[in-house]
Nucleic acid binder design. Sequence first.
DNA 1: TGCGAACCGTACCGTACGGTACTGAATTGG
DNA 2: CCAATTCAGTACCGTACGGTACGGTTCGCA
Lengths: 215, 215
Amino acid sequence: MQSVAATRETNAGNGLTERQGVVLEEALRLLVDGGEKALTTAGVARAANCSKESLYKWFGDRDGLLSAMIGFQASKVRTLDVAASALDAESLSRHLVVFAKDLLEVLSGDVSLALNRLAIGQASREGSKLGHMLQERGRRQIGRRAAALLEAGRKAGLLAFDDADEAYGALYGLVVSDWHLKMLLGEEAGEMKKGFGRKAEQAVSAFLTLYGKTV
Amino acid sequence: MQSVAATRETNAGNGLTERQGVVLEEALRLLVDGGEKALTTAGVARAANCSKESLYKWFGDRDGLLSAMIGFQASKVRTLDVAASALDAESLSRHLVVFAKDLLEVLSGDVSLALNRLAIGQASREGSKLGHMLQERGRRQIGRRAAALLEAGRKAGLLAFDDADEAYGALYGLVVSDWHLKMLLGEEAGEMKKGFGRKAEQAVSAFLTLYGKTV
DNA sequence: TGCGAACCGTACCGTACGGTACTGAATTGG
DNA sequence: CCAATTCAGTACCGTACGGTACGGTTCGCA
């Protein structure tokens, strides 16, 4: 990085320089590969070719680094808004299946699993600050996408529910079941990914049986 | 263990002396209170009034202690077998609701959450040995209870499903949804426990809509 | 050309943890 | 009453980590 013009925050509204983004990327790679234990300040500095002093200047302390990693990763995942096109029963079903597959893909991603493990590990102490961040910045996003989809389905007379949260909870549970926990516990994700398509279709079919208006 | 007479394993078939059981109990308390970071060998020794040397003699190393803790806790949770009584639609529903509530109670328990957090934290490295233990000794138990219940329902002509695992997956998902993850991430469990009853009934109702034979 | 800011690389410090070794007390069996 | 075993308590060692300080270098800027 050189002249301040080029160093200026190029990374959305994060207040992060691109150099810092590169460092966070490297830190995420370390976390994914070796878990929290591998995420040492010296290790990050070595991997990213920066000095520990810079790390502390940019992120304050180790916890600040962790928070920045979660915020950084969340900022990269933009949930595309559903084009509120006219829905019929068939297109709603297709949209739901796509959503279900995306959900499974996101939850089984390397970085997602690593960050969830990190936040869960820190949940006992420290008031679960990271847990709230992950919940807010991650789940809320995909939850909004689902809520919009469900609401559109209801507006189109294709779905019937009183409580949108309850309906979303059912959809989430049918799609994810205990797969997420199994993956967090270390079950090989590679073997399970093949079943995502079938699982998504089954879950959506069941969800429509519960909440669909069409017979 | 020495003269084998006085020190004999009094704790089921675990090969554990009762003294060792007390130590593990204390270790679990430390883990629940302060997370993995609080579970130091010196801390356990101090809390349990034993020497570090004894800890290493009994459990080998720190990982052995962790494994022993999981095995010890699992050995205390005995899943009562369902009395294969004659089922009608109403009693099946009641049994399912009880199962759902028990499931939520177990998953939201202090020790369960702490051990799951511990195993998840260790999942990245070490081939997730603890994760498999937890999966095998914990989930398998309650899964068997559910499988027996579902099978009884099918035998009685009250449930219709081809794949028992799939049906159980749906039941689990409808009951638990994302509550488990939220609690693992540090969401206050106290506030949520009030909703367990309603949640269980809703989930069972939905499950019977999907897999019940009675109209 | 000289100044200052940012930064890399490394050395350093205090601490805390896992694991081992030793000592003295208690208990047991003969 | 004595010898043997176990164990608590403590001291100790090596290591690794979080955090800080410093020398040297690059680069923009005047």
